[in-house]
Simulated assay, not measured.
Amino acid sequence: MNKKKMKRAIQKTEVKLTNEKIYKIKEEATTQALAMILPLAMLALRDAEGFGKKRLLRFHDKILEINDDINDGRLNIKDIEDVIGEEVGIKFTDGGAE
């Protein structure tokens, strides 16, 4: 089968996503995002705030706990943004905070 025929066959293939598959995809994406962002956040906390091993590991564990709460439906990002806005005065915008 040449490339053109293969492309047409793939485009015609029906993809069925169950809620379970969607949840699994979201969970994998979150895991990949955390694997990328956690080292960046930990480096920033070490450099800017002088965090050492103990505080960085507590931060790491708390982030994973919050992520579990999100995955289990106990929290969502909007709730977190609202709490940070009300309690600390930081407002989140597209791609940033002020």
Rank of each mutant, 00 (worst) to 15 (best):
Met1Asn: 07
Met1Pro: 11
Asn2Asp: 01
Asn2Arg: 00
Lys4Phe: 08
Lys4His: 04
Lys5Met: 05
Met6Lys: 09
Met6Phe: 02
Lys7Cys: 04
Lys7Ser: 10
Ala9Thr: 04
Ile10Trp: 09
Gln11Met: 10
Gln11Ile: 09
Lys12Thr: 08
Thr13Val: 06
Val15Asp: 06
Thr18Asp: 00
Tyr23Glu: 15
Tyr23Met: 15
Lys24Ala: 11
Ile25Thr: 11
Ala29Val: 06
Thr30Asp: 13
Ala33Asn: 12
Ala35Lys: 05
Leu38Glu: 03
Leu38Lys: 02
Leu40Lys: 11
Met42Ile: 04
Leu43Ala: 12
Ala44Trp: 06
Leu45Ser: 07
Leu45Asp: 07
Leu45Trp: 03
Arg46Lys: 15
Gly50Leu: 01
Gly50Asp: 01
Phe51Val: 10
Lys53Pro: 15
Lys53Gly: 09
Lys54Tyr: 02
Arg55Pro: 09
His60Asn: 01
Asp61Tyr: 00
Lys62Val: 03
Lys62Pro: 02
Ile63Tyr: 05
Leu64Thr: 06
Ile66Asn: 14
Asn67Ser: 13
Asp68Leu: 10
Asp69Ile: 08
Asp69Leu: 11
Ile70Phe: 11
Asn71Asp: 14
Gly73Val: 03
Gly73His: 06
Arg74Asn: 14
Arg74Gln: 14
Lys78Arg: 13
Lys78Pro: 04
Asp79Glu: 15
Asp79Thr: 13
Ile80Cys: 04
Ile80Gly: 00
Val83Ile: 15
Val83Cys: 13
Ile84Gln: 03
Ile84Asp: 01
Ile84Gly: 05
Glu86Asn: 12
Glu86Ile: 13
Glu86Phe: 08
Val88Pro: 04
Val88Gln: 12
Asp94Gly: 07
Gly95Arg: 01
Gly95Asp: 00
Glu98Cys: 02
Glu98His: 00
